[in-house]
């Protein structure tokens, strides 16, 4: 079936079975390979995207469920102020190692900061424990989210 999908501000077409998870539409049909496959059962968070601004594991989200909702992926994360603050923090702290899980980590972190501008360690752990990193960058992810919150807060101060 032919689907019209809103991805990163543009409409894309995909002719796939309705049960096809958004992950595979993004990667195999649209060529947006920044979103990663890790487990296929919502256990690892590598496939996290935003659907209408909320974190969603794209490996268990059939295209049929999405309708006209707006999908955002890592490829345009930097266009938002939360995403760009996170990317800045990730660069400052050199969070990444192999980097495979990081698109998912960043998308989860962005959803967290969008909902909770000054998360505590416990808030961060609660949300980010849905994302696995085998290289063990957890400490730096935690620090990176706090740093991004700081960047956003000081930008907010300037704006005032």
């Amino acid at each position: 079936m032919l689907y019209n999908l809103q991805v990163n501000g543009a409409v894309h077409q995909a002719d796939v079975d309705g049960g096809t998870p958004v992950l595979w539409v993004l990667r195999d049909i649209l060529g947006l390979t920044g979103t990663k496959f890790g487990c296929g059962i919502a256990m690892c968070g590598a496939c996290t995207v935003h659907v209408d601004g909320e974190a969603r594991r794209s490996c268990v989200t059939p295209i049929d469920f999405v309708g006209g909702a707006e999908i955002r992926t890592i490829e345009t994360l930097g266009e938002g102020k939360v995403g760009s603050a996170l990317q800045q923090a990730w660069r400052e702290l050199d969070v990444v190692q192999c980097g495979y899980c990081q698109p998912g980590q960043l998308m989860s972190a962005a959803a967290l900061l969008a909902a909770n501008v000054q998360p505590t360690d416990a808030d961060i752990d609660a949300v980010m424990s849905g994302n696995i990193c085998r290289c063990g960058t957890y400490g730096r992810i935690r620090a990176g989210i706090k740093r991004a919150a700081q960047i956003l807060a000081s930008a907010g101060e300037v704006a005032k």
Binding site: L32, T33, E75, G99
Partner: peptide, 21 residues
């Protein structure tokens, strides 16, 4: 020195084996 691979690994442009198309 900041890691040279960081920029590509935080904006989805880094290509892993699985990303070959």
């Amino acid at each position: 020195l900041r890691r040279l691979d960081t920029p590509a690994k935080i904006d989805g442009t880094a290509k892993f084996g699985i990303d070959a198309r």
